[in-house]
Amino acid sequence: MQHEYKSNYLSHVIKIILVLVVVGVVGVAVRAMVLPKSFGEFGHYRGDAIQDEINRPNRHGTNASCLVCHPYIREMHLAGVHSTVSCEFCHGPVADHVKNGKVTNKLPKKEGKEIKRLCLRCHNQIIRARPKESIKMISMPQHLEQKHVRTDHNCNQCHNVHAPLMWVNEAKAMVGVGEETK
């Protein structure tokens, strides 16, 4: 019986072991080839990923990046109580405005009812969660009634958005009312 077989009784076992070894060796070789060079440089991650993250383009600058080209606004903005308010919060990121030292787009300016909505994001007294130490709040429309102006007035009709008390104080100075601080 045994003599009829062409193959050795262990040939299939040896072939399988060979196949498994080849798969293993090829696997190790392929891994060495496709693994990014910086992988494992600092830990179990691609070391170059850190530089990739650092190189992410900045879309926001700081208020200084805006005010360097807008000196008039700069003077008003920095003198008023809104000096801590970010230009880019209301107008959008500087990257949408300037590219490679050139103006590419005009940034939007809030107008009309949008202004009121924007002001009330911070100053609306009805939202009670706001700490008084942080911000001065007003109720609408009581504030307008109190000041004897029409209730459809927009905030920026009395308040310069960059220096909210500038016009108020100027007006008070003109009519001789005692000057309010800031």
Binding site: N58, G61, T62, A64, V68, C69, V98, K99, G101, V103
Partner: peptide, 15 residues
């Protein structure tokens, strides 16, 4: 509008 000193997006322009 035309003259943007040092470029607002250049880091050197921002302290």
């Amino acid at each position: 509008l035309l003259v943007i000193p040092a470029g607002a997006m250049e880091l050197s322009a921002i302290p």
